[in-house]
């Protein structure tokens, strides 16, 4: 089984991201593998263990994004490819999907592509379905469990309406959610292997693509309005007295 896990590098969620002098900054906070994409790597590794095969981590990003790919290698991915090109700085999700599609086709013979549900930075959640559409493969989104048998995949999709069981032919595109299981920590051996790995870098020319033009363009960034919350602690002699005082306050706010 040949599996690809698509990952992105993003600022850690603890990071204080803000706009400063017209730029988005996050101070000294580290860049990490997008947390949702850890589930994608975990899902890919589970399938590799069940059926043997390889897991390739794939990322579009700057040179520094190699660190996120190394994390995937340390978790157990067999190899990693970085797609990096100055012309890819301002791509939208369709652009990313187009580039990932070309890379998946170049790799060839792929059975499953695993995505995260969403990125923390741009957070559109569109890239997986757009890649599936370009590839012409079935899209199985929000997957929490995967079984593969005779070239067919059965998944459990974790939806608001319940857990939906869906079957499709391989190759297929999946996006993976938390129910797949806690992403494994990199092992000591994994970290050593990852630190020595050389990660190939593909450019647009390597993929035979010209620079994509983004239909969706950012024209302004800003900090959200600050909200001054001073918490008023409600006290009282008994739970009943506290509850009554709190209900009074809530009703006065006219939110009900």
């Amino acid at each position: 089984m040949k599996i690809i896990a698509c990952i992105k590098q993003v600022p850690d969620s603890e990071a204080k991201v803000k706009v400063e002098n017209g730029q988005i900054t996050w101070g000294e906070s580290p860049l990490v593998i997008n947390p949702f994409d850890e589930y994608a790597v975990e899902g890919a590794l589970q399938q590799k263990e069940a059926h043997s095969g390889t897991v390739t981590a794939l990322c579009i990003g700057p040179e520094s994004a190699k660190e996120a790919l190394k994390y995937a290698l340390a978790m157990g991915a067999d190899d990693a490819i970085l797609i990096s090109d100055p012309a890819l700085e301002d791509i939208d999700s369709i652009g990313a999907a187009r580039v990932l599609t070309a890379a998946i086709q170049k790799i060839g013979g792929v059975d499953m592509v695993m995505f995260g549900r969403q990125t923390l930075d741009n957070g559109t959640g569109l890239t997986p379905a757009q890649t599936a559409r370009f590839l012409g493969w079935p899209m199985l989104g929000w997957v929490g469990r995967i079984t593969v048998e005779d070239g067919r995949v059965t998944v459990e999709r974790v939806l608001e309406e319940g857990r939906q069981i869906v079957k499709a032919k391989l190759p297929a595109v999946l996006s993976i959610v938390q129910s797949i299981g806690e992403p494994r920590y990199p092992s000591f051996m994994g970290i050593r292997r990852a630190s020595k790995a050389t990660i190939p870098v593909w450019t647009l020319a390597d993929l035979g693509l010209s620079a994509p033009t983004a239909a969706v363009k950012r024209v302004e960034i800003m900090n959200p309005p600050v909200r001054e919350t001073v918490c008023q602690i409600i006290t009282g002699d008994t739970p009943e007295a506290i509850a009554e005082a709190l209900v009074e306050k809530i009703l006065a706010e006219k939110v009900l």
């Binding site: 988005i24 363009k217 950012r218 800003m222």
Partner: peptide
């Protein structure tokens, strides 16, 4: 964007 830490204005 960035989990609501920043807002962006965009056009298409």
């Amino acid at each position: 964007i960035y989990e609501g830490k920043v807002l962006e204005k965009t056009i298409c």
